[in-house]
Amino acid sequence: MNMQTSSPGQAAVVLLSGGLDSATTLAIARASGFACYCLSLDYGQRHRAELQAAAAVAEAIGASEHRVLRLSLDDFGGSALTDDAIAIPVDGVQPGIPVTYVPARNTVMLSLALAWAEVLGSRDIFIGVNAVDYSGYPDCRPEYIDAFEGMANLATRAAVEGSTLRIHAPLIDLGKAEIIERGVTLGVDYGLTVSCYQADETGRACGVCDSCRLRRAGFTAAGLADPTRYTA
């Protein structure tokens, strides 16, 4: 999970949702010298505008390639992000694991990133999880990232043949304001990103879901103007 610089042009797979955290993670990977192969997942999320944002972010930051895979996690449901029958919480961030948790999402995404990394001959995967200003998701914790990295180094041909894989989570210990400040120093245009759990088709944010609240509070704490487009 430790950040390391790369050899010039060394490939890394970066999970890119189109939100603030993943955009910052991509900028960090690029600044570290990696050639970034970005992977986004169309998993049936109701905030599909984030996929358009991911494409814009990948182009702006200079990704080597950007792919979008279709997963249909909405066939299972079980989350407010994939099941229209479950309401998005709008009354403020509450303790515990919220209904916006998507079962096994990060595990599925990291597994796909791992597969692409093997094909690319890459030893590095970047993910923008955060264990400080987050909504209580169990797959955003440091121990989860460590466990997945350990599994990956047992389960892949590359690792068995001596090519150790690293899962980079450069935001894991940062607050939202620190993440924003880091991104600004790297030139991230946060106006391109979409974080809202129920953004409209044009990417405008609701301003009241957990993700919007955490994002807005981050800009306020950083003393920076919030470039987010809100519906009201």
Results as ranks from 00 to 15, higher is better:
Asp84Cys: 07
Glu59Gly: 05
Met3Ala: 07
Glu178Tyr: 11
Cys38Trp: 00
Leu26Thr: 05
Thr25Gln: 09
Ser135Asn: 14
Val129Trp: 07
Tyr134Gln: 15
Ala80Lys: 00
Ser64Pro: 01
Asp189Val: 14
Arg30Lys: 15
Met3Ile: 06
Asp200Ala: 13
Gln45Gly: 02
Tyr197Phe: 14
Asp124Lys: 02
Phe126Ile: 08
Ser72Ile: 00
Ser135Ile: 12
Asn106His: 14
Pro98Val: 02
Tyr101Met: 01
Val119Ile: 11
Ala56Asp: 13
Arg216Met: 15
Tyr43Met: 02
Tyr101Glu: 03
Phe219Glu: 10
Gly162Lys: 11
Leu71Lys: 01
Tyr137Asp: 04
Gly77Tyr: 04
Cys212Thr: 14
Ala11Gln: 08
Tyr134Arg: 12
Leu171Gln: 12
Leu120Ile: 04
Ile86Thr: 00
Val194Phe: 13
Ser7Met: 13
Tyr101Leu: 05
Ala221Trp: 10
Glu50Met: 12
His47Asp: 04
Gly223Arg: 12
Ile179Asp: 03
Arg46Trp: 05
Ala35Phe: 05
Gly183Asn: 05
Glu201Cys: 08
Val57Pro: 14
Glu181Gln: 14
Met151Tyr: 07
Val102Ala: 10
Glu65Ala: 09
Ile61Phe: 09
Ala221Ile: 04
Gly162Phe: 06
Pro227Lys: 10
Leu165His: 12
Ala159Cys: 05
Asp91His: 05
Ala104Met: 14
Gly9Glu: 02
Val129Ala: 06
Ser163Phe: 06
Tyr43Gln: 01
Asp139Leu: 08
Ala60Ile: 08
Arg216Asp: 10
Leu110Ala: 08
Ile180Thr: 14
Gln45Trp: 08
Arg30Ala: 13
Tyr37Cys: 10
Ser17Tyr: 05
Met3Gln: 08
Ser79Leu: 10
Met3Gly: 07
Gln94Ile: 00
Gly183Cys: 02
Phe126Tyr: 15
Asp124Phe: 14
Gln94Gly: 02
Gly62Trp: 07
Pro170Asn: 13
Thr185Gly: 08
Arg105Glu: 10
Asp133Thr: 04
Cys36Asp: 03
Ser195Phe: 09
Ala54Gly: 11
Asp133Asn: 11
Ala63Val: 07
Ala58Pro: 04
Asp133Cys: 11
Arg105Asn: 09
Ala60Gln: 13
Pro227His: 06
Thr220Met: 07
Val93Ser: 00
Ile97Asn: 12
Ala199Leu: 15
Ala159Thr: 01
Ile167Pro: 07
Gly77Ile: 06
Gln45Met: 03
Asn106Thr: 05
Glu149Ala: 06
Ala53Ile: 08
Gly183Pro: 03
Gly9Gln: 04
Asp226Cys: 09
Ile86Gly: 00
Glu181His: 00
Gly218Asp: 09
Glu59His: 14
Ser17Asp: 01
Pro142Lys: 06
Gln198Pro: 00
His47Ala: 10
Asp91Trp: 00
Arg30Cys: 09
